[in-house]
Lab assay of single mutants.
Amino acid sequence: MQAFVKTLTGKTITLEVEPSDTIENVKAKIQDKEGIPPDQQRLIFAGKQLEDGRTLSDYNIQKESTLHLVLR
């Protein structure tokens, strides 16, 4: 499924993900596309910070959801 990641600069990245993907996995995909190390990434969805060990389905993130990427 497709999900979108919006950065603070307003850029939107499109990712191909599965509901079973972990947040860690998603961060690795963002690193592949953008070169941002996962340890600098914080992903926010519905106002919550997403934890590495959880999956997209844990957070009820469905296709075409938009996550927000904040860098630390």
Rank of each mutant, 00 (worst) to 15 (best):
G53L: 08
F4G: 02
T12I: 15
E18K: 14
Q62S: 12
Q49H: 12
S65P: 07
M1K: 04
T14G: 05
S65Q: 09
G35P: 03
E16T: 13
V5Q: 01
K11F: 09
E18L: 15
Q62E: 11
E51C: 10
Q2I: 15
G10M: 04
D21H: 05
K11T: 08
R42V: 15
E64M: 11
G47M: 04
T12Y: 09
K33N: 05
V17L: 10
L8V: 13
L67H: 01
G35W: 03
V70P: 01
K11D: 07
T12G: 03
A46D: 13
F45W: 10
Q62H: 11
G53W: 13
Q41T: 04
F4A: 04
Q62D: 10
S65R: 06
M1R: 04
L43E: 00
K11Q: 09
T55I: 07
V5K: 01
I23K: 00
I13M: 05
L15Q: 00
K63C: 07
Q41S: 04
K27L: 04
V17K: 00
Q40P: 02
E18D: 12
K48A: 10
P38Y: 11
I44E: 09
V26D: 00
K6Y: 09
I13P: 00
V70A: 08
S57Y: 10
I44L: 12
H68S: 07
K29L: 09
E34C: 13
K33P: 02
G53I: 07
D32Q: 14
A28K: 15
A3T: 12
Q31A: 13
M1V: 06
I13W: 06
A46E: 14
K6A: 07
L8E: 15
L50N: 00
K27T: 02
R72L: 14
I23M: 03
K29A: 06
R72T: 13
L50K: 00
S20C: 09
T22S: 08
P38D: 04
L67A: 02
K63Y: 08
S65G: 07
R54F: 14
L67T: 02
A3Q: 05
D58Q: 08
I36M: 05
V17G: 01
N60T: 05
A3Y: 10
T55D: 03
H68G: 05
S57E: 12
E51V: 09
T9L: 10
Q41L: 06
G53T: 10
G10D: 04
I44Y: 15
V26N: 00
H68I: 15
V5S: 01
S20N: 12
K6P: 02
T12V: 14
S65H: 08
T55S: 08
T14L: 12
A3S: 04
Q40F: 09
L67P: 03
P38M: 15
Q40W: 11
T7S: 06
T22A: 04
Q49T: 15
N25I: 15
T55F: 06
L69K: 00
I61R: 02
I23Y: 01
G53D: 11
D32G: 09
E18M: 14
T9R: 10
D21Y: 07
T66A: 06
L71P: 09
L71G: 06
D39F: 11
D21K: 01
K63R: 12
I13C: 02
N25W: 10
E16A: 10
N25K: 14
T12C: 11
I23A: 03
P38I: 15
T12D: 03
V70K: 08
D58C: 03
P38S: 14
T14C: 09
L8S: 15
K33V: 12
K11I: 09
K29I: 06
K33A: 13
G47Q: 04
K63L: 08
T66E: 09
T55E: 03
Y59E: 02
G35N: 08
P37C: 07
V17E: 00
E51D: 09
P38R: 13
S20L: 09
A46I: 06
E34N: 10
R42S: 12
M1E: 03
E24W: 15
P38A: 15
D58P: 00
G10R: 03
L8G: 12
V26F: 04
D32M: 14
P37A: 09
K6F: 08
L15T: 01
K6R: 11
G53V: 06
Q40M: 12
G53Q: 11
T7G: 06
A46N: 15
D32N: 11
T14N: 07
Q31S: 11
E64N: 15
R72S: 13
L15P: 00
L15N: 00
L69E: 00
R72H: 12
T14E: 09
T14P: 06
L56T: 02
L67G: 01
Q31G: 07
V26K: 00
T55K: 10
L8N: 12
Q2F: 14
I13Q: 01
G35H: 06
N60A: 08
D58V: 04
P38H: 10
D39E: 13
G53Y: 11
D39W: 14
R72N: 12
A28E: 10
L69N: 00
L15E: 00
S20E: 11
S57A: 14
S57T: 08
E24D: 07
L15A: 01
F45V: 03
Y59W: 02
K63A: 15
T66P: 06
M1A: 03
F45N: 02
G10C: 06
T22N: 04
L69S: 01
T14A: 09
D21T: 10
T7K: 04
N25F: 11
D39I: 10
S65V: 13
T66Y: 08
D58H: 11
E16H: 11
K27M: 06
D21I: 05
P37H: 12
Y59I: 04
I44V: 10
E18W: 13
M1H: 05
F45Y: 14
E64W: 13
L71K: 07
I13Y: 06
E34V: 15
Q41C: 06
I30C: 01
K11L: 10
L50W: 02
D32W: 10
T7M: 15
L71N: 06
P37Y: 06
S20P: 03
I13G: 00
I30D: 00
F45K: 03
S57V: 06
V70H: 10
E16Y: 13
E24Y: 15
I61K: 03
T55G: 02
K27C: 02
G53P: 06
L67W: 03
G35L: 04
K48Q: 14
E18F: 14
E24R: 15
F4R: 07
T66V: 14
A28S: 11
A3R: 02
V5D: 01
K63H: 15
P37N: 07
Q62K: 12
F45R: 03
K33I: 14
V26G: 00
I61A: 03
I61T: 03
E16R: 10
R72I: 14
G53R: 09
I13V: 06
S57D: 08
G10A: 03
R54N: 10
Q40R: 13
L43F: 03
I23H: 01
K29E: 02
A46Y: 09
V26I: 13
T9Q: 12
K33L: 13
I36N: 03
V5T: 01
L56D: 01
Q31W: 15
D58E: 11
I36Q: 02
I23S: 02
D21V: 03
V26T: 03
K63G: 15
D32F: 12
E24F: 15
L43I: 09
E51Q: 11
G47K: 04
T14R: 10
T66Q: 07
K6S: 08
E64P: 04
G35M: 05
T22C: 04
K29D: 02
K48Y: 10
L50T: 03
P19M: 10
K11S: 07
S57K: 12
T9E: 12
I61D: 03
A28N: 11
E24P: 02
G53H: 15
T22E: 03
